[in-house]
Amino acid sequence: MANAAKPTSRPLSPHLQIYRLPLAAVLSIVASRATGIALSLGLLMLTWWVTSAAYGPDAYDMAMSYIASPLGLLILFGFSLALSLHLCNGIRHLLWDAGRNFEIGETKRGNIYVIIGAIVLTAAAWLLALA
């Protein structure tokens, strides 16, 4: 600290825990990263499901009895919502990578599109599956 005696008034970058993150940043953390980690585990469930079918009808029925149980369906619902969020936010990240939608208005509209899109996709899949 060369200038310890003379406090400067230069702006400091706010720490993550103090700074209120904009919604787009929260979505990047939750809808891209957290769901990505969850969906990596979801891939294990997918592999287990396909492999059980290769082992034969008994193994498949046992796997399906777990998947179709209340807890299994709750986990499946979680994965479907995570997948929808990851898909919608991923498309927006691809648009950002292409240099589009960086204006504040576009970003705020994008937040809404991502959230509404994820809810609509999840609801559509479950309504069609249970219809």
Binding site: Y60, M64, A125, A129
Partner: peptide, 28 residues
């Protein structure tokens, strides 16, 4: 990026397949 673009249609196909299977009768 390349895998994410490839996964957009693949995911739509996959979810459509799961929905189709959830509707179709005898599971196995």
């Amino acid at each position: 990026r390349v895998t994410s673009i490839a996964l957009v249609p693949l995911t739509i196909w996959f979810v459509a397949g799961i929905v189709h299977l959830a509707v179709g009768g005898e599971p196995y």
